[in-house]
Design a protein around this nucleic acid. Sequence first.
DNA 1: ATTATCTATAGATCTATAGATAATGC
DNA 2: ATTATCTATAGATCTATAGATAATGC
Lengths: 196, 196
Amino acid sequence: MKVSKQKAAENRARIVTEAARLFREKGLSGIGVDALTKAAGLTHGSLYSRFDSKEQLMAEALAEALKRSAVTLYPPDAATTPGAFETVIARYLSPTHRDTPGTGCALAAVGCEVARHGPAARQVLTEGLWNSAGRLSAVLPDQARPVDAKTDEALAVLASMVGALILARAVDDSSLSDRILNASQRRIIDTATQKP
Amino acid sequence: MKVSKQKAAENRARIVTEAARLFREKGLSGIGVDALTKAAGLTHGSLYSRFDSKEQLMAEALAEALKRSAVTLYPPDAATTPGAFETVIARYLSPTHRDTPGTGCALAAVGCEVARHGPAARQVLTEGLWNSAGRLSAVLPDQARPVDAKTDEALAVLASMVGALILARAVDDSSLSDRILNASQRRIIDTATQKP
DNA sequence: ATTATCTATAGATCTATAGATAATGC
DNA sequence: ATTATCTATAGATCTATAGATAATGC
């Protein structure tokens, strides 16, 4: 049942990619190694020749998830475009993002669970948060401020975005869910744009 | 091994209370019925004479968690006090709240997980969110606005609070954690107080 | 010969149920 | 007699390991 080196590398990559999606969709404790490897077309036993543990796969999968979603949610070329900030916020707080956690922001998908997991996953999430905050900082309306002030605002705005998406996904009422997204989007944009 | 009716009622209440704490501390999937009943001084078999399932206990426990934390986090008598809004935000985004999830806001403790659980738990969380938003609305600085505008702001501010607490708990870096809390607190208060 | 994957399984844990036990409360 | 709780266990699932298998690549 051996495959070529290239194929084996592809299989490994596919496990990580599928895990990046499934951990976000089902939660860190909501999916097991059996389902994770099956999604990549392999059997569960084959996982442990490449990963020390589920925890290690989790860390790699979260790193990939954060890397990919950062490119989609915070496109780096948008920094100079006018209205880039509004576009980023509107995309993050869209019904589409709410309804597709498997390809979305990992901070919102597994934020609560990561606090109770191993150091590898937490470290990866922390780096992803810094990266998101940096990209967000680059599109903030008032670019003339000191870097510390912009980072503070980026962290606070990011927290608002993550909280709104989590609550919009948690509630059992679609009109309330929409309202949380819309009210948060409006408040973030108004308060960031408005100069004292 | 039978106990008096009164004692039995106390035992049931103690299971719910302990579950309210443990679900918040360990997560909805992070603790089983064995540990939940053991924490109340009973054995796991005794749970099913009172609760249909773990899911039902979860819904009751979340209801109690939300009810108790609302009293602590949004004291109803604070509405008329000057500076009530700032106090509520500062208490919610304090290191103490971050470090004691077992007695804190259930929205932040299990928000991500609830989206993947049964309808009973989601409904309870939705009611708890409305309740929190209502209490928050009552202490917003500008009380002269229409009720819809105040509700929108309360929902958006609540999302910020929940997101900041979740991220502060998730990251593996205590100075970043503090910074998320402080930056969010300052931004929420500044943007709510400041009149255009 | 090496090695990527599979099969089989160990050992732990989890939810739920059935029947036994023993104290309450009529 | 009733019933709150316990003991024992079923059946499922989960992580991880060991050895078998079969195709690659020297």
